Amino acid sequence: MSKVLLIGASGTIGQAVHANLGARHDVITVGRSSGTHQADLARPASLAALFAAVGKVDAIVSTAGNVHFGPLAEMTAEQFHIGLQDKLLGQVQLALLGQRYLNDGGSITLISGILSTEPIRNGASATAVNAAIEGFVTAAAIELPRGLRINAVSPTVLTESMGTYAPFFPGFEPVPAARAALAYQRSVEGAQTGRVYRVNA
Rank of each mutant, 00 (worst) to 15 (best):
K56A: 15
K56S: 15
V57I: 05
V57C: 14
V57Y: 03
V57P: 10
D58A: 15
D58E: 15
A59R: 00
A59V: 14
A59I: 14
I60D: 09
V61H: 02
V61L: 05
V61G: 03
V61D: 04
V61C: 06
V61T: 07
S62Y: 00
S62L: 00
S62T: 01
A64I: 02
G65L: 02
G65F: 00
G65V: 05
G65W: 06
V67Q: 05
H68N: 10
H68Y: 15
H68S: 07
F69C: 04
F69E: 04
F69L: 12
F69K: 09
G70H: 12
G70E: 04
G70L: 08
P71F: 03
P71G: 01
P71N: 06
P71K: 11
L72E: 06
L72F: 12
A73R: 03
E74S: 12
E74P: 00
E74D: 13
M75P: 04
M75L: 14
T76M: 05
T76S: 14
T76K: 05
A77S: 13
A77E: 11
Q79A: 07
Q79L: 09
F80L: 03
F80A: 08
F80W: 10
F80V: 00
H81Y: 11
H81E: 13
H81M: 12
H81K: 08
I82W: 12
I82F: 07
I82H: 08
G83M: 02
G83E: 10
L84H: 13
L84R: 09
L84K: 04
Q85C: 12
Q85A: 14
Q85V: 00
D86W: 10
K87H: 08
K87W: 14
L88C: 03
L89K: 10
L89M: 15
L89H: 08
L89F: 15
G90P: 13
G90T: 01
G90I: 01
Q91A: 01
Q91R: 07
Q91G: 06
Q91H: 05
Q91Y: 03
V92M: 13
V92F: 11
Q93G: 15
Q93R: 13
Q93M: 14
L94R: 01
L94C: 05
A95I: 02
A95Q: 02
A95R: 07
L97D: 14
L97Y: 13
L97H: 07
L97F: 14
G98K: 09
G98I: 14
G98A: 12
Q99L: 15
